[in-house]
Structure formats: structure tokens, C-alpha cells
Design a protein around this nucleic acid. Structure first.
Lengths: 239, 239
DNA sequence: CCCTTTTATAGTCAACCTGACTGTAAAAGG
DNA sequence: CCTTTTACAGTCAGGTTGACTATAAAAGGG
């Protein structure tokens, strides 16, 4: 903060923007709200809002998340800072610096357009284009970050309910990465990672759809995956 | 931005803080400035300053980096957003939201206290305690991030001059991770990763200190490491 | 009620990667 | 000249991964 005591400073508006993801029927969805006013009236945008004077960005993000999803308890949800977007001109009205967050939800309560948004809705990722402001880019950055974190962290369980099958966990990876994974290999890898998942002791089995019932698991205490679960490297980079 | 059009907003001051790292004699150093005024007068702090109205945080960070290091060309240096710190009360005078950046320098020009700081100096990481504001935490977060990125990216070359030996590259990993690495295995791994480094074609050899002269390499076109170069997992997490 | 489809789970096998280690070469310093 | 230091080549066993086969247990359709 060398310029701290010498230069005059200009005030900025500070907002949070939320890239909220969930899985519905094995497809990655993002939460979007329809704007009611100019600029970008009628366009879809990420939920978010101003940071209040007594809040940190994290606190504001969690408050907005609760307002927008209609969930009464968002304390256990995964919420993580993505990055801050501060280009001049990203908001046509004034100078706005926005701290973007990524949130992951296990199930998808139908979004009630809480707060002040006209309406909120879960949209399959990729089917919404031309969002307001620079929200297309924020959403893409968030998805990329989530995909990368699946490789070396236990983040995937944040998409799952408290008890889940390994098939559901695999669907998280497949939906976010957009690649099918080998079932037996995925199973072996997950079970070999200490602390990733732990079996639910009771003779617990679940019948969701067709095939053989699957054993239930809970998220384990581990936060990181050692060694990581890597996406197939697209191609070797040529020298 | 659901609250965008309904709630009044409060202005914030927006600053950038820089965690600048370099290697001197194989030891990780951070760039710190001594504060000349209250609060925290006389204490060490991260370099940084206010974001100007026509700047993005990235632009402001690069400008401050040039001012603080005295380098005439900082365009090629690695500069990356770390995260944003926004706790109320992190600055006793006013509401300041700070976007923190991490920068990596190959060599260490003796820091001239450019800009407005009383003086700027390279301090071995870990020997400076009780920095001003929340800068201890920012610096620790930055080091952790750099250590993690060394695993799965080609970031290490950002600490090296344009041409370097594999020994120098290995010292980067050892200094940031605080662990000695096996020389032959490190060499094998780096050379087996396509695009990480490429040999300097001329009969290029360098004599730095003692032993056998080493071949010179340049940074290659790759940005990511596949598969990653992992730190030894400290210990298996107990179930 | 049988047969097909779907999913879970067990297991095999070869290729690859990694960590630990040995050996040789080429310089500097005493 | 001998020791120390660093670079570099190579070996070897164990672990991990990707590809693949096989079996079990359910649902759905005829």
C-alpha cells in the first residue's frame, strides 16, 4: 500500500457475483436470474448484489446465496472465492468491482426468485448465452475452476447429498468434465483414497433406478486427493 | 446482482497488495516495504496502493510492481490474482477492499524504495513477522498458492532467468516447498514432460559454482504439467 | 415369467510412473 | 593429487492407471 498515504483515492461500488452449480438428472446446471431493469433488462445474469458496509465479501455472498436459492440453511454449502473482476467499463453506469464466488449445491430446490430478482432459474450449463455484464466469462471461469479442483480435491462430494452412491459421485465428475469415466476404475480410485468417502455402516442400500442397488457412502474427512484423479490429458503438447 | 437496483450502496476504497517472491542464493525472499505513516508506522508491509479510477486491479498491480521493484520492464513477469480480502476492520481508518496479487521475479534487483514507500527490501520468507494489516496472512496464502501451483503448472520457470540449468530449476522447487528433491529423479521428470523446458541448442554450458558444468535450458511452451510433479504427501490421512 | 437392459462390483493384465539407489564424468578447492 | 561438489546415465522394485472381462442384482418389456 505504498500509494496509500499519498494519492487521493476514488470510491468504488463493491458487489459479489455468484456462480452457483448443481446437478439435475446428471446434467450440470447453473443458477441464473432474469434482470428486471436497465442495463441488460430482460437478460439473464448471475445472482449477486452489493456488499454492505458491515460485511465481508464472503458474508455478502452467503447472504445472497440464501436469498436467491430460498434455502433456509446455507451454512454447510461449499462457497469459495473465484476471483475479482475489476475492468473499468464492465458496468456501464458506474465503477463496480465485483468479487465472484463459486457455490456448489447437492440437490436443486426449484429456485424461487427470492430477494429482488424478477425470477431465478436453473439453466443447463452451456444453454444460456449472452449473459449480462461480463457474467459469461465469470461463469466459464467458475466451471473451469470447479473442473480443475475435482482433480486434486474432494470437492465432488459437495454436489452430493449426505449419503450417496459411487455412481452418483461418478456422475459429478462426468457432468463437470464432460467425459465418461470407466466405472470400475473410478470405484477403485475413490475407495483407495483414504478419507475421500466412507461406507455407511448399516446394511444401507439404495434403489434409485434400474440396475443392482448400490452401497451408500458419506463424505470423508479428507480435503485433498493424494494422488490426484486426473482428467485424461487432452493431447501431448508438441515441442 | 439482484440487489443492484434496489439497495443503496456504500462506497469502498479498493487497493491492490502484492506478494512478490524471488530466489536469492537458493532462498525464497519476499518483497516488503517499511511503512512511514500511521497506522502501523515503522512496520513492514506488502507493497501496493490504490486502484485508480481508470485502471483494473491487474493494471494497478503491474504499475505498483514496476514502481516498487524499480524494473523498467515488468511486462514479462508472472503476475496473478491471489484473492480479495474484504473483512471489515482490516484497515482501521476506512473500509478498504484489497485485491491481492502474487508476482514472481527471476533475479532480484536490489529493491529501491520507489514510489512512496520509505524503503523496500527483500526479506527471506519466514523471517518477517507481524506485518501491517492482514499482510501476514496474505503472504502466507500467496506462498501456499505458489507451492501448490508448482505441482501442476510450469510456473517454476518464472523464478528463473531466460536460460537456466536444471539445478537452478530444482532449487526453485526446493526453496518453495522446503524439501530436498532427488536430483536424478527431478531431471528425469522434467525432461519427460513435453514443453516444460527445451535445451538451448548451442554448445551452451554455464559455470556457476563448483561441480560439472550443466546444460542450459529455456522455458518451453507448455503451461500445465501432465502428469503433475507432486510434493510427497505428508502422511496418509487416517480414516 | 423369461429375457434384455442397466447398473454395481470383483478381478486381471500390461504399460507407465515413481522413489530409492548406484555409478560415472567433469569441474573447483585445498 | 585428492576430496568435494554437481551433472548426468542408468537400474530395479513397487505402485498406479487404463483397458478390459466377468458376475450379480435389480427393472422393464414382451
Amino acid at each position: 500500500m505504498s500509494g496509500y498515504d499519498r494519492h487521493a483515492y476514488e470510491p468504488f461500488a463493491v458487489t459479489v457475483d455468484l456462480a452457483v452449480f448443481t446437478l439435475r438428472a446428471g446434467v450440470l446446471h447453473g443458477l441464473l436470474v432474469e434482470r428486471g431493469e436497465e442495463p441488460y433488462a430482460g437478460r439473464w445474469a448471475l445472482p449477486g448484489g452489493f456488499v454492505r458496509p458491515d460485511e465481508s465479501a464472503e458474508t455478502a455472498a452467503r447472504r445472497e446465496l440464501a436469498e436467491e436459492t430460498g434455502l433456509t440453511d446455507v451454512s454447510g454449502l461449499h462457497l469459495e472465492q473465484l476471483r475479482t473482476y475489476s475492468e473499468p467499463g464492465r458496468d456501464p453506469r458506474m465503477r463496480v468491482v465485483s468479487v465472484a464466488f463459486t457455490a456448489l449445491l447437492p440437490d436443486a430446490p426449484e429456485a424461487r426468485g427470492g430477494g429482488d430478482a424478477a425470477q431465478a432459474r436453473w439453466i443447463p450449463y452451456g444453454s444460456a448465452r449472452a449473459l449480462a455484464f461480463d457474467h459469461d466469462r465469470i461463469l466459464a471461469d467458475a466451471r473451469e475452476r470447479v473442473g480443475a479442483k475435482l482433480e486434486y480435491s474432494c470437492l465432488a462430494t459437495a454436489f452430493c447429498p449426505p449419503e450417496f452412491t459411487l455412481g452418483e459421485l461418478r456422475q459429478v465428475y462426468e457432468a463437470v468434465w464432460g467425459t465418461p469415466l470407466d466405472r470400475p476404475n473410478f470405484r477403485r480410485k475413490v475407495l483407495a483414497t483414504p478419507g475421500f468417502v466412507e461406507p455407511v455402516p448399516g446394511a444401507a442400500r439404495l434403489t434409485g433406478g434400474r440396475g443392482k442397488p448400490a452401497a451408500l457412502y458419506r463424505a470423508g474427512p479428507a480435503a485433498a486427493l493424494h494422488p490426484p484423479l486426473l482428467r485424461t490429458p487432452r493431447e501431448g503438447r508438441p515441442a
